[in-house]
């Protein structure tokens, strides 16, 4: 089987996922700014317009509220839209539609209408795009009941989360970190689906848990390697699903390692990391051997200058320092 393993980029995995979804279900279409002729801001949908035509790959004007709302209406009306918001920064222009329509209509209508919609958006910093193009807003969306929030961090998840998202009768938001698009990995030919329920342990370890997701996963894995060189055996947990959180996998890991650092590219105050830490305190407090720690983005708008941007974001060195401080009290 291993000879058939396919090496591809995260970007190509996203494209394959969209292609397969459009081929599998005639109700599925991709809609968003520059998804067609331009090929997608991050080139995810390059070539798909030629392959599927303008009914299935729909370029929209710069009207986030209208085309996200139209995606919601189309989903209620029986289609299965994949709406691409170019980046999560622009999703603020559609926040009303996502929160007040997509997330509320099923409950507010007493279960009469569901919104089987997938919204994909790029997230995160790292390309010197400055304050307005570098947000990580997935934690905000993970606050909202009614939504499922996904953060694929591997090519396998990029390839297969979409089909699970489209099968969900509820609105699903998929956050693709901009620094992951060029990441390469192998698709296991034995895998043809993934769940969108569970966190995954990406590196087993005994001494502490590094809990993270999305663009911070490669940083946490790098940190684990650096820690290994110091004799600290870190486990890396990829949350994958930011709402609803998979408490069981988080607690199982923390109960074994008794220490945890949560790494989150969102700002610290009111962050997803804060939520994960609180749940650990609520559910596994007496099994901890050290205080919890967080590595989040510094509480400032993300600056343009490279050295300042680097300083603002979680980095392997910061994760290592946080982990070392926790394990230093070991024994």
């Amino acid at each position: 089987m291993s000879t058939a393993a396919q090496r591809l980029s995260y970007r190509e995995a996203c494209r394959q996922a969209i292609r397969a979804a459009i081929q599998a279900d005639e109700r599925v279409f991709l809609m968003g700014e520059d998804v067609g002729r331009y090929g997608g801001c991050y080139a995810v949908s390059k070539g798909l317009l030629d392959e599927f035509g303008p009914e299935r790959i729909v370029d929209t004007p710069l009207s986030e509220a209208a085309f996200v709302g139209a995606g919601i209406g189309a989903a209620i009306g029986g289609l299965r839209p994949i709406v691409e918001i170019m980046t999560c920064n622009f999703s603020l222009l559609a926040l009303d539609q996502i929160l007040n329509n997509a997330a509320t209509i099923p409950h507010m209508s007493g279960g009469q209408f569901s919104v089987p919609l997938v919204i994909r958006m790029a997230t995160g910093a790292g390309r010197q795009l400055a304050a307005q193009h570098s947000h990580s807003l997935e934690g905000w969306y993970a606050h909202i009941p009614g939504l499922r929030v996904l953060a694929p961090a591997t090519v396998t998840d990029a390839r297969y989360m979409l089909q699970a998202a489209l099968a969900d009768p509820n609105p699903v938001l998929v956050f693709e970190h901009i620094m992951l698009y060029a990441l390469e990995g192998e698709l296991d030919p034995g895998v043809s689906a993934v769940d969108i329920e569970h966190a995954a342990i990406r590196r087993p370890g005994r001494d502490l848990s590094l809990i993270t997701y999305g663009g911070s996963l490669p940083k946490a894995l790098s940190a684990a390697e650096l820690l290994a060189a110091e004799g600290i055996d870190a486990e890396v947990v990829d949350l994958r699903v930011l709402r609803p959180l998979d408490d069981a996998t988080i607690m199982e890991s923390v109960r074994r390692t008794r220490r945890a650092v949560v790494i989150d590219e969102g700002w610290r105050s009111g962050s997803l990391a804060a939520e994960v830490c609180t749940r650990i305190v609520e559910q596994a407090f007496y099994e901890l051997d050290a205080p919890l720690a967080r590595v989040c983005t510094e509480e400032a708008p993300i600056p343009y200058a490279k050295h300042l941007e680097d300083a603002a974001l979680p980095q392997p060195e910061k994760i290592v320092a946080a982990a070392r401080a926790l394990v230093g009290g070991r024994g």
Partner: peptide
């Protein structure tokens, strides 16, 4: 104004289906 984008989508679904 929140219902207007929704109406666009419902009309789109009717036409596509």
């Amino acid at each position: 104004g929140g219902g207007l984008p929704l109406a666009v989508g419902i009309a789109l679904a009717d036409r596509r289906l």
